[in-house]
Every structure is written in C-alpha cells, then in structure tokens.
Amino acid sequence: MALLTGPLPLIPPSGSLSAGIAEPRIVALGGGHGLSASLSALRLLTTELTAVVTVADDGGSSGRLRDELGVLPPGDLRMALAALCDDTDWGRTWRDVMQHRFTSRPGITGSLDSHAMGNLLIVTLWELLGDPVAGLQWAGALLGARGQVLPMASVPLTIEGDAVETSADGSQQRTTITGQASLALAGEVENVRLLPVDAPACVEALTAIELADWVVLGPGSWYTSVLPHLLLPELREALCATPARRCITMNLDINDKEATGMNAADHLRVISRYAPEFSVDVVLADPSAVSDLPDFERAASMLGAEVVFGKVGASGGRAVHDPLRLAGAYQDLFSA
C-alpha cells in the first residue's frame, strides 16, 4: 500500500460513443438515485465527465461512518462511482461489489449490518491517503469509471429547514427539521439551509465547473440533493459565473415526500427563490411530469430557460429515467 501517496491521474476507458471526436466537458451535480440516473446516461456520451456530489447525508451506513469516523458521508459518492462503471464484466462486477450490503445471519446483529462495501472501501482509501479527492480517484481507477467523482464540499454538511405543521384546531406551527434523512420525510418545507454556512467548496469541483461546456443539475430529491449545490456560497458563485451552458433535468416523480403539494413549475420556482442570480439555458422534462404547461413555461422563463420535452422515462410507467432515452435527449441538447 505504499504506492497510495497521492492523487492518481484519471485514465478514461476507451469505447465511448463519442470516441474519435472532441468530447464535451460535462459536470453533473446532485446526489443519490437522481444523480446516478443522470450519470448512467452521460457516461455514454463522454469521458470528460465530473460528478459533484452532495455530502449532507446523515442516515444509514453513511450516517454511521460519518458519526463514528468524522468523515464525509460516502454513500452518494459511492452511488456516483457505481453509475460510472463501464458496461463490461469488469464494470458490472465492480458496480455490484460497491453496492453490496452486508447482512448478518438470522438472530445476529452484526457491526457490518447494512454497511455498503463501497462505503468501507472509500473510507479506507481516505484514511490511507488523508485526501478525499485522491481517495475517490483511486476508487474510480479501480472501477474503470468513465469520469471522476468529487464531493461538493471538503467538510461534511448538515442540511436543515422549517416544516409548517397544522394542528387539529387549524393553527400552524413552524418546526426546525435538522438532517437530510429527517428533512427528506418532513413534507412541505421552507427556509432550507446548509451548516456550516461558510463551509468551503471542493476546489477541484470549482475548477471543473469553470472549465465545463455543460453543467447538468438534477434530477433528484429537490431540497436535499439538487438545491444544496446552490446553497453553498462558493459553489453557487461558480455555477453563476461559469461560461458553460446550464441544464436542469426535471424529476419524473414530482410529488415525492419532500416535495408534497408541489408541481413541476413549483420546483423551478424553488430554484428562482433560493438563487435568483442563477440562470439556466435549458430545462429538460418528460411531458408526463408536467401537468400545467403554461405555468411550467412561465417558471422556466424566470430562470431564462427554454423548455425541451423528451420521453426519457423507463417503459412500464415507472418513475425512473431510462439511460438510453436520457442519453439521446442530452445528445440532442449538447449538439444543438
């Protein structure tokens, strides 16, 4: 292990759909399953791909490792790396290794229960190298990842917001909800914020955004995976200043738990409200997720964006993005 002394140069695998031509430099921001969906599509188009991932998770395996070891929560970073695995026996095997969770035999409660193997691998590299970015580079090289994965901040973040509860007599009371896991289940929330307020952004992420051709934000849990990138001051400044074109990818499931009562246009108004200086070139949406087209177009215009519709959902009516359909929609956007 003496070779693990610093950053490992990223060596992208061959065989991307755009091999032989200049590949677009794309930065995708988000977390969890939403970012994985975006990356699964984008890796088909370019190897010049950077994932910038939220680091506010405080639940499950990630929350335990964060609390016990004081590290960045690795779960969303792991999922991003798994999404970038090549579609070969090597890539599929390492994807499954990263996503594997331990389960003790019946009647036993073990210390490894529910831990993901990839989380443990990533934290091991961090402890050996003392550098989160270098550790993720080594993990990406092992997996043959088509791109690189970076944390949005160099320290763990805490996300909190206010939930308004209505009592039986009709009166309303505002409650502060702290932690990503709790906020995601709180229902309608407002005044969402990150702690510490002056947390430093990952320098490599800022550089990637500055040099990008396209920045893609979403899909994902709107308040806990998408919005946090615009709540971190240094990252918001970089997203506003970059010469890259900007795309927001809308969710297929508009009414998840943390977006209770919101329609597609409301999601865009959240972006305008929290980051009024942030402008967007394109909003990509599946027509099945937009119930009020004029209202949606008005909300997009507040961001300066054109609305582009594409059938990007998986077959069978599931609220899951199809990687090939989403890749085709992105390809049309990037080549326009």
Rank of each mutant, 00 (worst) to 15 (best):
S61M: 11
V53Q: 00
D67E: 15
A51E: 13
V71A: 06
D67F: 11
R101Q: 14
G59Y: 01
L121M: 15
R92D: 13
V55K: 05
G110S: 04
S16G: 13
S62V: 04
L129F: 11
P13S: 01
L17P: 05
T54S: 03
L112Y: 14
S18Y: 14
T103I: 12
L29K: 03
D131R: 00
M98G: 10
T46H: 02
H33R: 10
I26T: 04
A83W: 01
D87L: 06
A19V: 10
L129R: 07
A22W: 04
L39F: 06
G30V: 01
L45A: 02
R92M: 13
T46V: 08
L72H: 05
G30E: 00
M117H: 12
L29A: 00
P13G: 07
D86E: 15
L42D: 12
D67G: 09
G91V: 12
D89Y: 07
L129K: 09
A82C: 13
R95K: 15
S36L: 09
L35T: 08
A41P: 05
G20K: 11
A41Q: 08
G118Y: 09
L29V: 08
P73Q: 03
A51K: 01
R78I: 01
I122D: 06
W90H: 15
G32K: 00
P24H: 10
P132R: 04
G75P: 06
A116C: 12
G15V: 14
S114F: 02
L129S: 03
C85F: 14
C85K: 15
L42H: 08
G30P: 08
W94Y: 15
S16Y: 12
A19G: 07
W90I: 10
S38V: 09
A22I: 01
G107S: 03
A82M: 05
S61P: 09
A83E: 02
I21F: 10
S38W: 07
D76L: 05
V123Y: 11
T46R: 05
G20R: 14
G118K: 02
G107D: 02
D89K: 04
C85M: 12
T47C: 07
L77M: 06
L81V: 13
G20T: 12
D113L: 09
P73H: 06
M117R: 13
G130D: 09
V71K: 11
A56T: 12
D131N: 15
S36F: 11
A83G: 03
L39N: 03
S18L: 15
S40C: 11
E23I: 08
A41E: 13
E127R: 15
G59Q: 07
L81G: 07
N119A: 00
D57P: 09
A22Q: 02
A83Y: 00
T88F: 12
T88A: 11
D86Q: 14
D57N: 01
H100R: 14
G31K: 02
L49T: 03
G15D: 07
S40G: 12
A83T: 07
R78T: 04
D86K: 12
A37I: 11
L17A: 14
N119T: 02
A82W: 13
L125Q: 06
L42N: 12
V123N: 10
R64H: 05
N119W: 01
T93S: 06
A116V: 10
L129C: 09
T103K: 08
C85H: 11
G118T: 04
A83C: 02
V97N: 09
A28Q: 02
E68T: 13
I108N: 04
G91S: 13
A116W: 14
D76H: 06
T50E: 13
L112K: 10
Q99Y: 09
F102A: 10
